[in-house]
Design a binder for these strands. Structure first.
Lengths: 218, 218, 218, 218
DNA sequence: CCATAAACGAGACGGTACGTCTTGTCTTTCT
DNA sequence: AGAAAGACAAGACGTACCGTCTCGTTTATGG
């Protein structure tokens, strides 16, 4: 009488077999991504609903539920896709950190670019939404970090290692922690509105981080 | 599709006079705080509803809507109250930063205490919820910062200024920015799950921040 | 974690306490009755939906689900109310069978009136819908009979008993069965489209039933 | 609200050529009949769905939609087929009414057999479902009558005509109407739960119908 | 005996409605 | 007048089916 259920299923939830990916409609997926991103920008994340995304994309709700388990997941993929698309469209490398030999200048340049990106509403709305969701939903938060944040941070790690080889950073420094000295303050000001964001601010962060707060004794 | 609302009240909404604070039921307020905090801990913020809080507090929904405008506001006040209550109960000062003359040691000690607090579920659940809400709701985010974050950060500013007077921090350093070098990395790791949190980690942050990433001499 | 459940509840269904009838909105009830009847007439029973009734009545869906358990129940009550309302409006007695002393004439008159009623779309659409639902849903079917059919049939029982006293019907006849000889054929032709319905037809039924199919032997 | 449709196909709908009957899969048809009948018995008509039939029959949904236009049509054919199959299996004539010369006895016998059939769930579930559907869907209702009901009723017409020739029924009686005096009451009690069904009841119906309700002499 | 065209199983799709849940407002009753 | 209680309009949730539309895969002649 009751449908077959898999082990971990909650009562009443039917165990749908995994959908067949090969038959997936590319057009619908694109439309869903576009609708989700547009809605988050236009009405904000909390008032972006799955029904709204479906309606705007001209898609049945089930088509969303078939492939994603929450609006956060939809938005995550949409945002990832947006990033990949930007890269494809620009034809550039997936933005690396320059290595001119002047570490301070290179870091300042990248952070200034980040400041600009953080203020672009096309990126701000969805990434803020995902960050917020991730704060309260650990699983999604970790996915957000793995797929979006960590790849960017790795670029700093690489640049810092190169600086270590060049003798511009002390060899005993852990680059993964070091980068947080200038990246996290910017992130926190942006995320939590703890302070204004400007080129001057990020420049200062780089200087403080490289030379320390304490006086240079000889 | 989304209903635009006029400044205070949409049409059809009767402009209730501000409720009379003097007649407010203290018992209900306490019950609402307790219910809100308990629910956030037990079922998480997204599944904490106003209805749920009212039911658990044995209070009419209107009693909540009369005094607060959203569940985030309820939780904010509840959390603030929790803090004040802790202070009252312990009889201690509202936790200051020690000033032993050893800046590094003092900062490490405070950050270690912060690490412990971040792992206490009584504090973690509501503060994480409020932080998440604040990321996506600027008004609430700024309130969160003003009422909760900034007072704590001010303590670091004070300590750093004292260090500057003692010659342990370069005089040209802006303490409000300086504190972010070690506070923001911890905040980001906690908020966004970008990395593990430990005493060793916070100690390292303090060392890096004080002495900089670059070598002392060329 | 799971909500309180009453004994017979299926999993996942929360045990709502019975709503408080005294606070019920009379206006909403009327609007729901009107909408349900109008929709059944206009679009037919299968395409009458709870959502449609709610929308047309300007009522939330929950207000329907709070007081009724299915669209059939809504329609049943709406139809009963329609009947009572007709009676109230006309100020007449709830239509009785005349007793002129001429049984055949009296029965023919009532059946002719019934023929007219069966062809009135205001009555036909909902009663057909309820009859259909009752065929396949025994519980509702019995309710339909008890509340709507049986009271009408009782009038025939009364008239036939009076005829028995007058010597116009044999004393050993069971009136409850006897009435079916002329009522059921009409009902079946109407319900199942097994034949045309006319005054001539119902007159014939009365004659056949009263005098039998077999020849009168002395 | 309801979409008007052009003669054969609304815009966007491809005009599928009539499918080629000769290539039809007999196996699928049988499986569909079996699944439809089984589901109606097991879960009831309203919860019998086309998807369910297809799944149970191990058949694509399109195979159903290719050959039938609604679940009622599927069930109608399945039920007709069931009847034919019963006849084939039993090797009997498609059940006629005996003609022993005793009209009352013959009618009582046939009605008793009908009572039995009406209580057989193999027949009851689908025929009740079809009857219900027919009440609300005139086109289907007429098809139901033509294909299922009328052929059976014709047998009564024949038997009554034979009785007229034998002088057991008055010559001016219309047999098509006459049969309703005992058939329709049974039908209504079964369909609408207006009363219990028993041999005694049907016997009584025959007696009442043959001899009338009125006394023989005045 | 193979070529080919249909019917077929499978199932994704755009939709509609379901029945449930929560929101924020309103009303009733009690204190 | 504030509060508990809870009905109400509104609307999103996630599910079930609808009927349509591809997809390969049988299968069944007819060239």
């Amino acid at each position: 009488m009751a449908a077959q259920k898999s082990a971990q299923n909650s009562p009443g939830k039917i165990d749908h077999p995994a959908p067949n990916t090969t038959r997936r409609s590319e057009k619908s997926r694109r439309a869903i991504y576009d609708a989700a991103l547009a809605l988050v920008v236009e009405v904000g994340y909390p008032r972006t609903t799955i029904e709204g995304i479906a309606a705007r994309a001209g898609v049945g709700k089930q088509t969303i539920y078939r492939w994603w388990s929450s609006k956060a997941e939809v938005l995550m993929e949409a945002f990832l896709d947006l990033g990949e698309q930007s890269v494809r469209d620009s034809g550039l490398e997936p933005y690396a950190i320059p290595d001119t030999g002047d570490l301070a200048a290179d870091l300042k340049a990248v952070l200034r670019a980040t400041v600009d990106e953080l203020k672009d509403p096309r990126f701000e709305a969805p990434s803020r939404a995902l960050a917020a969701e991730g704060v309260v939903n650990e699983q999604l938060g970790r996915e957000f970090v793995t797929k979006l944040l960590e790849p960017s941070l790795q670029l700093y790690v690489d640049r810092l290692r190169s600086a270590q080889e060049a003798g511009d950073v002390r060899p005993e420094i852990d680059p993964r922690i070091a980068l947080e000295l200038f990246v996290s303050p910017l992130a926190q000001r942006w995320l939590q509105y703890t302070g204004p964001i400007s080129y001057e601010y990020t420049d200062t962060l780089v200087d403080y981080a490289l030379h320390g707060l304490a006086p240079r004794t000889r």
